[in-house]
Computed example of a mutant assay.
Amino acid sequence: MLVFLEEYLVMFYSGFTALSDIIFRFICSFFTSLCVSLWIGRRMIFYLKKLSCRQIIRMDGPKTHFNKNGTPTMGGIIILVAISMSVFFWADLCNIYIWLVMFVLLSYGIIGFIDDYKKIVHKNTVGLPARWKYIWQSVIALLVSIVMYIIGRETYTTFLVLPFVKSIIHQLGVFYFLITYLVIVGTSNAVNITDGLDGLAIIPTVFIAIGLAIVAFATGTEKYASYLHIPYIANISELAIICAAIFGAGLGFLWFNTYPAQIFMGDIGSLALGSTLGVIAILLRQECLLLIMGGVFWIETASVILQVGYFKWCGQRIFRMAPIHHHYELNGYPEPRIIVRCWIISLILLLISLVTLKIR
Rank of each mutant, 00 (worst) to 15 (best):
L80G: 13
F12N: 13
L347T: 03
A225K: 02
P72I: 03
C53M: 12
L160D: 01
F175W: 15
Y333V: 14
Y310P: 00
S226G: 05
A249S: 15
G61Y: 05
I282N: 10
W255F: 14
V126F: 08
W298V: 10
G173A: 11
L182Y: 12
L9I: 11
L271M: 09
I168V: 14
R153N: 14
L351P: 03
I111N: 11
P129W: 06
L254R: 09
L93T: 06
M74Q: 09
S52K: 15
I22S: 01
R58T: 00
L197F: 09
F253T: 08
G41H: 10
L239S: 05
K49E: 13
Y134Q: 04
T276L: 04
I242Q: 10
T17M: 12
M11T: 10
T219G: 00
E329Q: 13
F46P: 00
N69F: 01
M85V: 15
A141I: 06
L48D: 06
Y13F: 15
Y227A: 11
V174W: 15
P129T: 08
G294Q: 12
I202S: 13
I280H: 09
I233C: 00
D21S: 13
C35L: 15
V183D: 13
F247G: 02
I135F: 15
F264M: 08
V147C: 04
I193G: 06
T17N: 13
I98G: 09
I22Y: 03
I146N: 01
Q55A: 15
G199M: 07
L182R: 03
L182H: 02
Y134P: 00
R58A: 05
G127H: 05
L178I: 15
R54A: 07
P72W: 07
T71K: 01
A244G: 15
Y224Q: 05
I56Q: 10
K358D: 01
S29W: 05
P231K: 03
G294H: 11
F175P: 04
M74Y: 07
F103Q: 02
Q286I: 00
C94I: 02
I299P: 02
E300M: 01
N67M: 10
V304E: 08
R42F: 07
M44L: 14
I193L: 15
M265T: 04
A240Y: 06
L357Y: 05
E329G: 02
C314L: 07
M59K: 14
G266H: 05
S14G: 11
Y134D: 01
L350T: 08
S20I: 01
R153Q: 12
A244N: 09
I150M: 07
I352R: 02
T301I: 00
A141R: 07
S20V: 00
T276F: 06
W90D: 12
L349D: 07
K68S: 09
L178G: 10
